[in-house]
Design a protein around this nucleic acid. Structure first.
Lengths: 135, 135, 135, 135
DNA sequence: GTGGTCTAGACCACC
DNA sequence: GTGGTCTAGACCACG
């Protein structure tokens, strides 16, 4: 069953990252990793609403943006699908580094606010990697 | 010079984390790391305003929250100070793991939204660590 | 109609007591008197803004402080509610006496500044009490 | 010793009433009650500063305003004195009622914020009156 | 110089 | 519609 792709997604309210953007991220991520491909059917708004307790309007907003950027196509009364030729965003090497930098720095700042050090962060990441080498 | 503690702080606009919360994080972090101690004077609202080009009200909001939560004490017309007995938030092992999980997951999701993989993230973090082994 | 609780509140500008603190006082008072209970919805920021001609930001500041002190909980896009377990501040006998002393002394001093005597104050209070024996 | 008039004054920081206005109030009050009369010498700025831990500038501001309104006269290097013909502010009956109303309402609101009722306030005032019938 | 309060108005996320 | 964040700018009290 194709809809299973979203079963390990997580939505964090109060994370600062808009919920609708988290949904977009998850879909783009699935696209990049290959778990979603051209023509695949996305979970319906109702499904996401029920699974993550996200307001349907918020899901709709995510899908609307994805449609505007040409990633998905919505067929009325039939659901939404990954568009033919949809490509996950490609960043230049430089932009990638910058993004990574930015993400990491943010994580550090937030962690620091809770009294967590960079070493603790790194240890956690490494251990996590060891625990789930497959997946 | 005591005021120097904030000279390496950084504020990221558009990071999703409210600016005022970033300021709070920086202060809590400094408290946890020991670079700020009981009785130390914080940078004035206007200093932070000028240094980071943040609106004074935004800084004031951060300081107000810190005061309400018992971390700092404000003396009218005289500045703000780390309160006697102010304790950096102490998390249990479990809560720490949870926080770390949450931060990391968030970073992953966002990175994925840009087409960046977990491996890229980890590589970036490791390299960064190698580049600045000290400090 | 639940929202009616705030219909007899009054805000005095130029009283020396910050407007946002007056709002907090009114809510704490309603909590203590029982006219607001766990789970009750507070008037929205915009309602108070319109009713008292107070800037929405000022109302928001009051609500924010109430949230930080654990009295109310705010649901984004949905309003603010009295938190489960919210307790009106309980003062010891001694502290009560002290507070009452302090309030009264303050009133006396101010009255005196206008040439009003303690007797005039007391008479006024007693007459007021006689006029509105109920409610 | 004339300077004794201010020995029972009290200054409340954080009461919302500006400190300099509290000083003014005390002096006007003393004038109304007769404990200060034409030609009497006021406590020096330094005295008030030391006794109440009020910044000298703040005392100076109070005296400056009193001078502007014609209540006191300052002789350089010699101190400040109640001016000949100085009269405590006289309010019309109506204004008096209004002031009293306003003071009382404020006291009620503040007390309510601490969970204190009007009855408690009234009882406190009555008891206080009984305890110190003289003075 | 310090912080505190308030206003006005903008934009955003969420219901 | 709800609250959240931020800016800009004013005025005040206090040191």
């Amino acid at each position: 069953m194709i809809d299973a792709v979203h079963e390990q997604w997580s939505i964090e309210f109060n994370s600062g990252i808009p919920v609708y953007k988290q949904i977009i991220n998850h879909i783009c991520s699935a696209l990049a990793s290959g778990s979603l491909k051209e023509g695949d059917r996305l979970p319906t708004i109702r499904q996401l609403h029920e699974q993550f307790d996200v307001n349907p309007n918020t899901v709709a907003k995510a899908y609307r943006e994805l449609e505007l950027t040409g990633i998905i196509a919505t067929e009325r009364g039939n659901g939404s699908f990954i568009k033919a030729g949809a490509e996950p965003e490609r960043l230049s090497e430089v932009d990638q580094r910058e993004k990574l930098q930015s993400f990491y720095r943010r994580m550090l700042t937030e962690a620091a606010g809770c009294g967590l050090t960079e070493d603790q962060l790194i240890n956690h990441i490494i251990e996590r990697k060891k625990d789930e080498p497959v997946h």
